[in-house]
């Protein structure tokens, strides 16, 4: 890759990772602009990873004031009310992240991404959203798709001890490593809206149960006008009713969406199982690094992790018509 060489300071700092992904990848990383909307245990893990990796800039959006709930699994904010009182999550996280790597510009941006001007998105190569409704995710995903430049879109949500990552790289081409050199590889991604519209009976066999559980919960939150995690076990009867409706409509046996799993997610409400955050935030970090550097096979297009069985599974749920 052409362009200026890394500085001696960069070479020294990034030595260990350049040994993993090479100098060219490091140069691409240093030019990448990342936007994260929504700060929680999982997304701050991602932020940490990407700042350490040495991206060009990271912009944070989350105007919520710090509360006890918002603090859980967040290691960027001191447990000290005198420090955090009256300040927004994005401001506080921004301050800590700047410290992690002085070579990365970390910014806090006020406002709501869902309401932003379309042009605002053009500043970014990667957009990560979390902690918002399905509707908002779909809207932001569509906006990213409408821009002339390709903006990689990721949605991540952690619930109790399980989590989901959605990836939309639109049309993505990269050099795939083969045993005998490299081959150009094209991947075509579905938008979030298209992906979740695919009839359940058309899905590959043995799709992760988490896929269905997430759709049921998400739909419930949407119908109630709640944000992710604003749930409790009092919602169980209504959620089970919704499960039946969705399963009937999609001709899927309800056993694919186990009640125990739904109950586990509802009972936890906004509480995350902390060790799951670095796992999801780590996988997301890796995926974003792959997408920016063009090195390595990116995941397509859903990822699931559940601490209960320990599996981290990729599911390809793409709309065949869009390919």
């Amino acid at each position: 890759m052409d362009g200026e060489e890394l500085t001696a300071q960069e070479t020294a700092l990034y030595d260990r990772q350049i040994r993993v992904w090479g100098v060219d990848a490091q140069k691409r990383l240093s030019k990448a602009q990342i936007l994260v909307s929504g700060l929680n245990g999982t997304s701050v893990e991602f932020c940490k990873n990407i700042v350490l990796a040495g991206v060009g800039s990271l912009t944070l959006m989350d105007d919520r004031l710090v509360t006890e709930d918002a603090l859980q699994a967040n290691f960027l904010i001191p447990r000290d009310e005198t420090v955090y009182s009256g300040r927004s999550l994005s401001e506080l996280c921004c301050e800590s992240l700047r410290d992690f790597n002085p070579m990365v510009r970390v910014l806090a941006e006020k406002g709501d991404l869902a309401q932003c001007e379309m042009e605002f998105l053009d500043k970014f190569d990667v957009v990560v959203v979390t902690g918002c409704s399905l509707k908002t995710k779909i809207e932001i995903n569509e906006k990213c798709r409408e821009r002339a430049k390709r903006i990689a879109f990721y949605a991540i949500e952690c619930r109790d001890s399980c989590g989901e990552i959605f990836v939309d790289l639109q049309n993505y081409t990269y050099a795939q490593k083969k045993s005998d050199g490299t081959a150009e590889c094209h991947l075509s991604y579905s938008s979030l809206e298209d992906a979740i519209l695919i009839p359940w009976r058309n899905l590959p066999r043995k799709v992760s149960k988490l896929y269905f559980a997430m759709r049921v919960i998400e739909k419930f939150e949407l119908s109630e006008g709640r944000n992710p995690g604003e749930l409790s076990n009092f919602d169980l009867p209504a959620v089970l009713k919704l499960r039946k409706e969705l399963c009937d409509a999609q001709s899927l046996n309800e056993s694919h969406v186990p009640e125990t799993l739904l109950e586990r997610i509802l009972v936890a409400g906004p509480m995350l199982y902390p060790p799951v955050c670095p796992i999801l935030g780590g996988i997301l970090g890796q995926e974003v690094i792959k997408a920016i550097s063009g090195k390595g096979d990116p995941l397509k297009n859903f990822f699931y992790f559940d601490a209960a069985d320990g599996k981290g599974v990729i599911e390809d749920i793409s709309n065949p018509s869009s390919i």
Partner: peptide
């Protein structure tokens, strides 16, 4: 004998250790 190391893998492994 320099290790090849990135933050993401270490974070994931740490999560798995705690589990």
């Amino acid at each position: 004998n320099i290790v090849h190391a990135v933050a993401t893998t270490n974070a994931i492994i740490a999560g798995l250790i705690v589990i």
